[in-house]
C-alpha cells in the first residue's frame, strides 16, 4: 500500500510546480482571488493553509484504517473545521489586523477544495510521512501562486510590496500621474479575475512550449 506511487520527496516537489493546486489543478480559487490584493494577506493565508493542511493530512493519515467509506468526507470536513478553528483563534490572538482583514476567508478554508482533495487523494491512502511531505509541497505550491498574484496586484495597485509590514515601495511616492497612475482596478475584484486569467494563460503557454521543446 505504501510502496506504490511516487516517493515522499517526489510528492513534495510535485506539489510546488508540476501539480500546483492553483495553477495546474485550478482548485481553491476563492481564497486565491480574495486575499491577494496585498502580500501580507497572501502570506497569512498561506500560513493558515499550511497549518491546516499539514495537521489535517497527518491526522487523516493516522486514522485511515478507521475510516468508513460513506462517512469519509464528513470526517475530513470535521477534522479540517477543528484545525481551522485553531488557526482562526491563533490569528486573532497574534495577528489581529490580518485576522480582521481576511475576515470570513479564514473560516472558508474549511470548504477549500485543495485540502479535501489532498485528504481524499493522498492522506487517506498513504502513511504519515508521505502525507506530511505531500501537504508541505501542496501548501508551498499554493503559497507560490498566491504570492505571484499578490505581487502583481499590490505593485500595480498600490505601488508597494509588503507595504504594511515592511513598507517597501516599488514605485516612488511622488511619481507623476502622467508617468504612472496606480491601477486601482487591480485591487478591486475585476483585477483579481483578470490577473489570475493571465497567470493561468502564462503557465499554460510555458508548459506547452517546454513540452514542444522536449519533443523536438
Amino acid at each position: 500500500m505504501s510502496s506504490d506511487g511516487p516517493t515522499p520527496a517526489e510528492r513534495f516537489l510535485r506539489g510546488i510546480l508540476p501539480e500546483n493546486p492553483v495553477l495546474r489543478q485550478v482548485l481553491g480559487i476563492c481564497p486565491t482571488l480574495a486575499v491577494t490584493n496585498t502580500m501580507e494577506g497572501a502570506v497569512t493565508m498561506t500560513g493558515a493553509v499550511l497549518f491546516v493542511l499539514t495537521c489535517a493530512n497527518v491526522l487523516v493519515s493516522l486514522i485511515r484504517p478507521l475510516l468508513k467509506p460513506h462517512l469519509r468526507i464528513l470526517v475530513f470536513t470535521l477534522t479540517i473545521a477543528t484545525f481551522v478553528t485553531i488557526a482562526d483563534r491563533l490569528l486573532a490572538a497574534f495577528l489581529y489586523d490580518m485576522s480582521r482583514q481576511l475576515g470570513p476567508y479564514i473560516p472558508l478554508i474549511i470548504v477549500n477544495c485543495i485540502i479535501i482533495a489532498r485528504c481524499e487523494i493522498c492522506a487517506s491512502k498513504q502513511p504519515v510521512r508521505t502525507a506530511l511531505m505531500d501537504a508541505l509541497g501542496q501548501s508551498l505550491g499554493f503559497g507560490l501562486a498566491l504570492c505571484a498574484l499578490a505581487s502583481v496586484r499590490e505593485i500595480l495597485g498600490f505601488g508597494t510590496w509588503f507595504g504594511k509590514w515592511l513598507g517597501w515601495r516599488v514605485l516612488p511616492v511622488g511619481l507623476s500621474e502622467r508617468v504612472w497612475a496606480p491601477w486601482t482596478v487591480m485591487i478591486l475584484p475585476p483585477g483579481a479575475f483578470i490577473a489570475l486569467a493571465l497567470l493561468l494563460g502564462a503557465v499554460n503557454w510555458a508548459t506547452a512550449r517546454a513540452r514542444a521543446r522536449k519533443e523536438a
Binding site: 475585476p190 483585477g191 483579481a192 479575475f193 486569467a197 493561468l200 494563460g201 499554460n204 503557454w205
Partner: peptide, 15 residues
C-alpha cells in the same frame, strides 16, 4: 490555446 478553459472563463468573469 493557453487561455482555453479556466483562463478565458476567469477573464470574462473579470469583465
Amino acid at each position: 490555446a493557453p487561455l482555453k478553459g479556466p483562463g478565458i472563463t476567469l477573464a470574462i468573469a473579470g469583465i
